[in-house]
Design a protein around this nucleic acid. Structure first.
Lengths: 332, 332
DNA sequence: ATTTAGCACTATGAAAAAAGGAGTGCTTAA
DNA sequence: TTAAGCACTCCTTTTTTCATAGTGCTAAAT
């Protein structure tokens, strides 16, 4: 459905959204008419029209107006102007990305911590290490008679390891297995290792190695570590500072939903690499929340970063911060 | 100061503490006299004595009694009986410790998650991997012309790694450095590696290796990773369920203090391996909170586990849970 | 010498009532 | 179209009222 608004209606809607985002209080006609140099009665009738169109809501019969979900949507799609990142914020982020000591995944996490700190919203990072990695090398290091460490390295420099009890298996056997595995699967993309291990390697080691079942499990375990996705949620308690969380019940409710629905937040419903904005019901978390998220992709890893906050979110600011972080991740 | 209480006073104090722990409501004389088969007037006069001794408090002139900090202390030191872990709780914990797939550090974390879930208190795990580990092996794996992965392994099976840009440094030089380092510090306890690296190795590689400054930094970096202590805080938002956190202000206050004072919680003020209980001011976090903590030590690592909750904490239950977890960690 | 019954008293928390105010819609005039 | 005026509504805050759970004290009972 296409909405046609007059310029003045757009202006009023924009002012109301921005004002409400700033102060979390229903916006009355007086405030608007001061800015627009017209009478409050005029503004009131425009507000009534905007309400009829479903863009504004009242909290009760004689309250000021609050943007509806559609109101936010219209604002985001049609009225919002990108907002420059403030020098202060920029500085904080630069400090992280220009620090060469930090690994890329630490940069991502730390920069989103910054965003949570300066906005009071919650950040979510979903990282998938295995992206495009291929198996480079498997090492075993004997620790004692009974234990060895298996160390697996990918071409992008990811390392996983596991200490394993190999009581009753001779070092020869282990080495034989490693050699077999090395020969058969070095160069395989990490995502495919598990299945290759199961369908190609398992039958073969079964033939050559005595304790093949146990050994197989050891390696299978190490490899599945790679495909584990790591989810980091940062700054949940910052949200307590926002006025929408003024009651403990609301806090508890949202925190629980956040815990339960992290998957929904980062669910890949499109392959688009742009910034996506999900408002209210669209979030699948809580009707009062908004999620802004985007994907990033480096040559080492790919993932999703998202900001979760109330519908009354500083959309322009968050979009730009996310954009900026994404750029910095990808050029790092 | 030694307090001498009559048996009946002890009994009353104990009942009040237990009752208050259960219901978080000031305890009146009626409730006690029902249990003790005496009149409320009698109980009232005993309560007045206990208040005079500083063990009980009133919230206002005509309220029931609440244990004071000293009251809890007396209860913990003199009146508390160990409480059997319920079958249900025991089962949940056993499920974790009997799972051989899990590494010890995962067991610790998960078991404390359980504690947070069943008690609604917050758990803290401080792990120090480096304990008693000695350097076993250093591997380097070249990824491309410009990058290598440095993999360091200890005798207890801990592995740290770092991908390093070695642009402009020849592989020969790197190998030479690794050989030097291997020769000089293999077998050194991890805690001492940093200083040994600085005072013994650095001067030597300076003589033999061209890009020694950069290379030195690389290795120094990897080793400091080992001595990093990991702090995990679990179940902060569970505390929202407790009645002492019925206002957002209190929640915010305590969560902030928790974030800021994690170090205080696990600060080692004694080498004792017993369970320690810190009540109110003793916690150095918040006068309304209690911390119960203990150290654990395995042949691989050592650390501290702690439970943070309101002063009105189920002392007997938490002590036993912690004891049980500690035992299981140490025998694993 | 304790214990108990009786009674006056007190702060609290919940509910009800009152006051104040911000904001609306509608009607009418500019 | 726009603005001014006005009645009306609902929310918020404050004040009042009221019931109650609990106390401390005194005097009688054990």
């Amino acid at each position: 459905m296409i909405l046609v608004l007059t310029d003045r209606q757009k202006e009023i809607l924009k002012l109301i959204v921005m004002e409400y985002i700033k102060n979390a209080k229903p916006v009355g006609s007086n405030l608007i008419c001061d800015i627009l140099n017209c009478s409050s009665a005029t503004v009131r009738s425009e507000m009534a029209s905007l309400e009829e169109l479903g863009l504004l809501e009242k909290t009760h019969t004689s309250s000021g107006r609050v943007p509806s979900e559609e109101g936010y949507r219209y604002y985001v799609n049609n009225l919002m102007k990108p907002k420059e990142i403030s020098g202060e914020d920029m500085l904080k982020l630069q400090l992280i990305f220009s620090n060469n000591q930090l690994e890329i995944s630490d940069c991502i996490k730390k920069s989103l911590e910054i965003v949570s700190d300066i906005t009071n919203y919650t950040s979510v990072v979903l990282g998938t290490k295995s992206h495009d990695n291929i198996l480079k090398e498997i090492n075993i290091v004997p620790l004692s008679n009974d234990t060895v460490v298996v160390v697996v390295i990918t071409d992008k420099g990811f390392v996983e390891h596991k200490t394993v009890n190999v009581e009753g298996i001779s070092l020869e056997e282990i080495k034989k297995t490693v050699t077999l595995i090395n020969n058969m699967i070095i160069g395989t993309p990490i995502d495919e290792v598990s299945s290759k291990l199961e369908f190609e390697v398992k039958p073969v080691i079964g033939r050559y190695v005595k304790e093949h079942e146990r050994l197989y499990n050891v390696f299978y375990n190490v490899f599945t570590n790679f495909t584990n996705k790591s989810v980091d949620v940062v700054g949940k308690s910052n949200m307590l500072k926002l006025p929408e969380f003024s009651t403990v019940d609301k806090v508890r409710d949202v925190l629980e939903k956040l815990d339960d629905n992290i998957d929904n937040i980062v669910k890949e419903d499109s392959e688009s690499k742009d910034i996506k904005i999900y408002i209210g019901k669209e979030t699948n978390i809580d009707d009062d929340m908004t999620v802004i998220r985007t994907k990033y992709k480096t040559d080492k890893e790919e993932g999703t970063i998202a900001i979760v906050g109330p519908k009354r979110m500083e959309y322009d600011r968050v979009v730009n911060l996310l954009e900026y972080i994404k750029e910095n991740i990808e050029k790092k």
